[in-house]
Simulated scan of single mutants.
Amino acid sequence: MDITFDNYKIDLLSTSEGEAFFDLIDTNRARLEDFFAGTVSKTRTLKDTLEYCVEIENRIKVKSYFPYMITDVYTGQFVGLVDVKNIDWNVPKAELGSFIDSRYEGEGIVSKATNLVVNHIVKEYKFIKLLCRANTRNKGSIAVILKNGFELEGTIRRDYKTTKGEIVDLNYYGKVFD
């Protein structure tokens, strides 16, 4: 897989990149806690993150999770993530999540990366539906979702528990493919 745009490349996370993954999460931990609770909880320390990367590698092998890392080609640092999760091969459908390092926010990087990942996974894995979930407070994610042609399908009340224990409503956005 060779996905590139501007000064960035997109590739699946490999086990050898655990430290870089930890650095990205740790740098953005406070802003990710509410909306990436699972990832944040599994990456509290470098040791936890390295163990989680082994788990991720196994999930990639069995095609149950695809974490596409966005890398700055000049610095070699991870700047964001577009992940494909909650895969249902019976349909086939999946959920997308994404975030960008706060230092790169507002540049359109995660919007472009999401578009490229969507095109790749629809072609490669023949997904016929993709969905995204976002809390109404998460304006940045909603902007990325809408920019990529997803449409609001509805709001599921009391659907997600944040790291702080708050139960929040989530908007569900979908996109279908022929």
Rank of each mutant, 00 (worst) to 15 (best):
E51W: 09
Y160I: 04
F150Q: 04
E105A: 15
K61D: 12
Y65A: 08
V79I: 10
E19F: 07
E107Q: 15
A143I: 08
F35M: 08
K126T: 13
Y160L: 01
T15C: 14
R59V: 02
F35P: 00
G80P: 03
G165T: 05
T15W: 08
Y104W: 13
F177A: 03
D11S: 15
Y68T: 00
R157Y: 14
G80N: 02
Y125I: 02
Y125K: 01
L24N: 04
A37M: 13
K85V: 15
D2Y: 03
D101G: 05
D11L: 12
K147M: 06
Y65E: 08
T162R: 01
Y104D: 00
E124W: 00
K164P: 03
E166G: 07
E57I: 07
V40I: 10
N28G: 08
V54R: 15
R133G: 09
R157H: 10
F22R: 02
A143T: 11
F22N: 02
S14D: 10
S111N: 01
F21W: 09
A30R: 09
K164W: 03
A30C: 06
I156D: 00
F78I: 09
D34S: 11
P92E: 01
N58M: 14
Q77T: 12
N171D: 06
K63C: 03
V117D: 06
G76T: 09
N135T: 11
R44P: 00
I109D: 03
E95K: 00
G80S: 05
T163V: 13
T163A: 14
W89I: 05
